[in-house]
């Protein structure tokens, strides 16, 4: 086409071009190839940037609006309420669980307190029992000690009495022996001794 523009004006039109093309078969393959390339370039040019091809705009806008409306309806009617309910349900469950756990913890604390209380009570009881037992034992012991003391005192008194008797007996014996010995000594010396006098003398001596 380009090669012919010099000789033919634009007014010549397609019919003239066709006649010219039919006449100029001698140009051959090179011209045809050039034409094809030109056509390809023309097609590319007509598309240009697909984003700026305004003939497709109504189509895209129509389907976009349809899509957005469908998505909006799906979201507002089904998806979002469901997810919101699931989330709030989970939140509620978590809150309940935490409350329950708190309650259980309180119960556990109470149980611990009760246990500690019981332990303290038991300990106090044990102390009391021990003290009582101690007191009982002490009382028993005191009674026993008192008895034993009394017995010991009685025995000691008895023994003292016996000793006193023995001592008195011994003193009498000593006196009798001393009188006899004094009488024997006087008789051996050849003297005559009055039994009454000797006895009185020995008694006097022994008192001294």
């Amino acid at each position: 086409m380009a090669t012919e523009t010099d000789t033919h004006g634009e007014t010549a039109g397609h019919a003239a071009d066709a006649v010219q093309g039919a006449a100029d078969t001698a140009h051959g393959a090179a011209d045809a190839a050039h034409g094809a390339a030109d056509a390809a370039h023309g097609a590319a040019e007509s598309v240009g940037m697909p984003q700026l091809d305004f003939s497709t705009f109504p189509n895209q806008i129509f389907w976009l609006v349809v899509t957005l409306v469908v998505i909006y309806l799906i979201l507002t009617k089904v998806a979002l309420p469901r997810i919101a309910s699931v989330l709030s349900e989970r939140q509620g469950t978590i809150t309940n669980d935490i409350a329950a756990a708190e309650e259980l913890k309180l119960k556990a604390l109470e149980a611990e307190d009760a246990y500690n209380q019981a332990l303290a009570d038991a300990r106090a009881e044990a102390h009391k029992i021990v003290a009582e037992a101690k007191a009982d034992i002490q009382a028993d012991l005191d009674v026993a000690i008192g008895k034993a003391d009394a017995e010991i005192a009685a025995k000691a008194a008895e023994s003292e009495a016996a000793i006193g008797e023995i001592r008195a007996g011994a003193l009498d014996s000593v006196r009798t022996v001393a009188k006899d010995v004094a009488k024997d000594v006087i008789a051996a010396m050849g003297g005559k001794a009055d039994a009454k006098t000797v006895n009185a003398a020995v008694t006097a001596q022994m008192k001294g």
Partner: peptide
Amino acid sequence: VLAISLLLVVGT
């Protein structure tokens, strides 16, 4: 739309 439905509706 299908993918959104699969994720947000079928998935939940």
